[in-house]
């Protein structure tokens, strides 16, 4: 088993943290993992992306040219990564702010209204967990309990009271995926 995933969006939307939690969860599930961020000023508002590889074998490159799954949260990232999804792969995107929709027909595309859902949940900061929920529904690479343990590790202790809100967001994200 090997899953090559890219997540991309605006800096601040939480793609790097989402990737980190996914990577931690993979670790808890005894998988090999690499987490390769774009780093620098984009963390503060430009476009940011992260490549996460989860595998039961040692991982060669943390840098890839094609992906099994792309999680896309803004137009620039869609323009950049849509063509780089492997045929038969998966594209998950939030239609919020997307004016040019994806056009590929050889991949499975899941629009996930996560921005709207985060407004409904009245917790914009769990936006990336809604996305993660959608990703896990489509791509159950790691166990949800491992994700929660990963979250616990990624969040400083003073924020542990937010764990239930994050779980709720993940569940909401799973519900948003329509077959």
């Amino acid at each position: 088993m090997k899953k090559e995933i890219v997540a991309a969006g605006f800096g601040g939307q939480g793609v790097l943290s989402m990737g980190k939690i996914l990577a931690y969860a993979g670790l808890m599930d005894d998988l090999e993992v690499t987490w390769m961020p774009s780093y620098g000023p984009e963390q503060r508002g430009g476009t940011a992306n992260v490549t996460v590889v989860l595998s039961d074998q040692p991982i060669s490159s943390p840098v890839l040219d094609t992906y099994d799954t792309a999680v896309i949260l803004n137009q620039q990232s869609l323009d950049k990564f849509e063509s780089k999804i492997k045929p038969g792969g998966v594209l998950i995107y939030d239609p919020y702010g997307i004016h040019r929709k994806p056009t590929r027909t050889d991949i499975t595309i899941y629009p996930v209204e996560a921005m709207e859902a985060s407004i409904e949940l009245k917790n914009a900061k769990t936006y990336n967990m809604i996305i993660l929920g959608a990703l896990l529904k489509v791509n159950p690479v790691v166990d949800i309990e491992s994700v929660m343990r990963g979250l616990k590790k990624a969040l400083p202790e003073r924020h542990h009271h937010l764990l239930p809100a994050n779980r709720e967001a993940i569940m909401r994200g799973m519900e948003l995926v329509k077959e």
Partner: peptide, 10 residues
């Protein structure tokens, strides 16, 4: 280099 400095692994 910046890659192996910034990336996370086991």
């Amino acid at each position: 280099d910046g890659i192996v400095g910034q990336m996370m692994e086991k």
